[in-house]
Design a protein around this nucleic acid. Structure first.
Lengths: 348, 348
DNA sequence: CCCATTTAACCAAACGTTTGCGTATTGATT
DNA sequence: AATCAATACGCAAACGTTTGGTTAAATGGG
């Protein structure tokens, strides 16, 4: 049922019907016409098309709902499902905190790609007070997001320019501490398995090596995706290149899990023959054999903090960009031990 | 910012802009034009006017939108983040398939609780054509959801009454096959570590045992949460109760991971001293030592299938409830071996 | 009875999209 | 060189409202 149909049935024009229905004081209709129109409206159960009405009146539009009491949690879908263990925990922290404040969390899980119409739609459709972005995200992307969401909190691995609220855990420092731990156990030939470009944890590795004036040798470095399979293949590559390393540093746990498997398959004992250490401390790590030594980063707490400052900003609690650096600590378990000093030479 | 303005700036017509943004396959634009348009979109933060869009596409009033080209993916947030490896994979499958059909996926991750106002709002806020429900979900809940979403597809572990579209992988059969594999290796005293009530895989275990007229002994059964830590603690409990089992069946991989750890800590060698098998075949399983033997369930494919039939239903492809049973197969790896026959007695 | 004023109703132009159809431009195929 | 099919794009008509400007009829005061 539309205005047009009503108009037809009442034998008047659309505008008249519209005016009657909206009770525009300026130009009333005759009582007879009004009655007739209302009669039809009642009989047909007409209800105005809000889309059309909003379109015309231009109101109610903007994608920024003043107070929806909901936030979006955007995270780039990573290739390997397992990698989600980290982000999943992060998200859970956000959810917990949001719940406390009576906020609702909408998830946007996607390989963020502006030029992907689906993604575009997903983002512009969602009406939220603010958004938390998880994972790696470049500046351009953040600028884009900021246009769509009131606020953006970045809760991720690498550090950003100070323009956004961000809660991070200093990846460089963490990596340095991990490597330092190996060094203090007497290791000098420490390999790296993981991504190398644009990976701050790799920088930490390099810096820690340099600090001890230890060489960062090409042979010791394997550039591979930071996934279980990436770690597995990376370790194999490493073993093909050389065998005199005594320890391995992986930038995250799941890479380490894959690497450990490959190492063990080659007959290397951990930690007797080779030590391995990584960063994150995801839950699973404690159920491996041996239990992985790693840098514990407070993932859940990071999520909670992210939600906390996002909501604080939404509610006007602060206006300047806030950077929160979460503490980490070394969790020594079973995969690290003193260096054997001797070369493995023909290990397997 | 409107299409018109973008069109002006890009020097093309409105229709071209619209087509690019909505990715209409019929009439593509040149790459150069596309890039230019997206650049402007990004720079200006353009967001389509939903009122106009709805008006044009003929969307109705209420929360049931005939054609939003989006589906929701609802899943109960599980306690342990790691458990998400399964659901995460499932979701990814859904996403892949949805993307192919140009559908957008909105995630609703929450402990589904009708009485929780936040949940209620989250659900009623979201405007989607249909929803896929992942994980365990009772009938009451499904009925509730059906009120808010046009269609509900259940993609989960357990089987349901035939009222909804559902894609499942027969948990009972899978469990039976796993147990049968152990039996064919000569195992008779097979323990169970996992949840027992309302868990179909447990039923499968029982049935397989009975089929061989093997006793389902109370001592062999440990009721524990199906998580890594649950598995770990469960195995410890089991070892306290008895030591003469020769094999363990866990209803899912992550439980098995925890159990394996506990077993190994007690000096038991896998598979020499005790075999272990489970269900799911999540990615990680191959990087454990030993590699876990498990029933492979086609998780990604299940997700894809779920999206497929959901979209098919939305678009009127079928009307009667559809039940799809996905095939599984046994993936024999390293954690299973012939029974030692002899009791372990004082193993450690 | 004429002009001014009110009243009653209409016309048509927006609002920002989507989309069927038409037309150039291109490239490949005879 | 002519033909044909893609390809890349534009035109314009919707979608259901609202509203300013207008017209025609009714009213009223002199």
């Amino acid at each position: 049922m539309t205005l047009k149909e009503i108009a037809q049935e009442a034998g008047v024009s659309i505008s008249t019907v519209s005016r009657v229905i909206n009770n525009k004081g300026t130009n009333a209709a005759s009582q007879a016409v009004q009655d007739k129109i209302w009669e039809i409206v009642r009989r047909t159960g007409y209800s105005p098309n809000t889309a059309a009405r909003n379109l015309k009146t231009g109101q109610a539009e903007e994608h920024v709902t003043p107070h929806s009491r909901s936030i979006a949690c955007i995270f780039a879908r990573t290739q390997e499902p397992m990698k989600d263990a980290f982000f999943s925990t992060l998200a859970r922290g956000i959810e917990q905190e949001a719940f406390k404040h009576n906020y609702v969390v909408k998830y946007i899980i996607t390989s963020i790609e502006i030029n992907n119409p689906a993604t575009f739609r997903l983002i512009s459709d969602n009406q939220v007070d603010g958004a938390a972005v998880l994972g790696r995200c470049d500046k351009q992307m953040l600028r884009f997001l900021k246009k769509y969401f009131n606020y953006v909190v970045y809760s991720g691995l690498n550090e950003l320019q100070a323009k956004y609220d961000q809660v991070i855990c200093d990846g460089k420092q963490a990596a340095m501490e991990a490597v330092a731990e190996l060094q203090s156990l007497g290791h000098a030939r420490i390999a790296y398995i993981g991504e190398t470009s644009n990976e701050i944890r790799f920088e930490g590795y390099c810096e820690a090596m340099n600090a001890k004036t230890l060489p960062v040798l090409r042979d010791y470095i394997v550039n591979t995706p930071m996934t279980s399979s990436g770690g597995y293949q990376g370790a194999q590559k490493l073993l093909n290149k050389c065998r005199d390393f005594t320890a391995v540093f992986c930038p995250n746990d799941i890479t380490a899990i894959g690497a450990m498997k490959a190492l063990q398959e080659h007959g290397l004992k951990i930690p007797e023959d080779v030590s391995i250490i990584s960063i994150d401390d995801i839950d699973l790590v404690q159920y491996l054999t041996p239990m992985l030594s790693t840098i514990h980063v407070p993932i859940t707490e990071m999520g909670q903090m992210a939600a906390k400052i996002l909501i604080d900003r939404i509610e006007g609690g602060h206006h300047l960009p806030m950077k929160i650096n979460m503490p980490f600590y070394l969790a020594t378990r079973e995969s690290t031990g003193p260096s054997r000093k001797k070369h493995l030479s023909r290990g397997a």
